[in-house]
Amino acid sequence: MNAPASRSRFREAEKRRDSDHVSFLRHKGFRWLWIALLLSGASALGYALIDQQPRPNGGTWYGYTLGTIGLGLILWLTMLGVRKRRINPGAWSLKAWTSAHVYLGLSLVVVGTLHTGFQIGWNVHTLAYVLMLLVIATGIYGVVVYAVLPARMSDNRREMTRAQMLDALTALDRQLESAAQPLARDEADLVLAALKQSPFAGGLLARLTGRYPGCATARARKGMAGDSEAEQRVRALLEKRLAQLGQLREALRIRAALEVWLFLHVPLTMALIAALTAHVISVFYYW
């Protein structure tokens, strides 16, 4: 056994076991926030102090510098998607990457804007700039939901996994099916419709809002008006089913909110990179 190596690993592991649970936003005492502020501050200071001729513009040497920094940052920020999926050995931390991604991404607002020299028009250059702002805006939404929703998701879960929520629903369905046997035809049909409907039915809008206007269980609950023993039993079960559906749908809603922005953020990033390519080529072509 390699004793010295193993001892250094022990020290590393002890440090890890002693570490606080700190979110990506506070990682290492806001290290990347400070770096991003420094970068933004320096860019702004340079913009203010350097006399760019004929006027501040992407084409001056300072404009090129900012543009190169911005392009480099954008390409590097895109690599988060690879970093997240490439689980190779080494002392990397995805949390540190996320932290850097968020703060450096935000600093692009300053770097990118100064690079434009506030010259906006109907062209591919401005398209790239607007796309960049859209990517950052979706990203900000992402940071907000990451900060707010996890605790809500945890509260809603009440220690149940999603598979267990579905199992609980199946168990209720089995009870409902036998409890509905003595019901009259029209009431039995209501129950059957509720059982037949997929708990996921309702589409994207329902998923995101948590509102399921076509919910057959809710309809069956409303239609179960009688007072016979069987009807009371079915009504109680339908209420349980509604509650269980509610928990499952809330879990899905939060999950969807945590993920939906990525369906804008990532394609917009692809579009941004395409626009940037056009922007860079055209700039050099018309040098």
């Binding site: 979110s23 990506f24 990682h27 689980i87 002392a91 995805l94 990451y146 996890p150």
Partner: peptide
């Protein structure tokens, strides 16, 4: 090398 992958790969800490 780098220690537990579950911790390294957590994006939010």
């Amino acid at each position: 090398d780098g220690g537990p992958a579950c911790v390294r790969a957590c994006p939010t800490g």
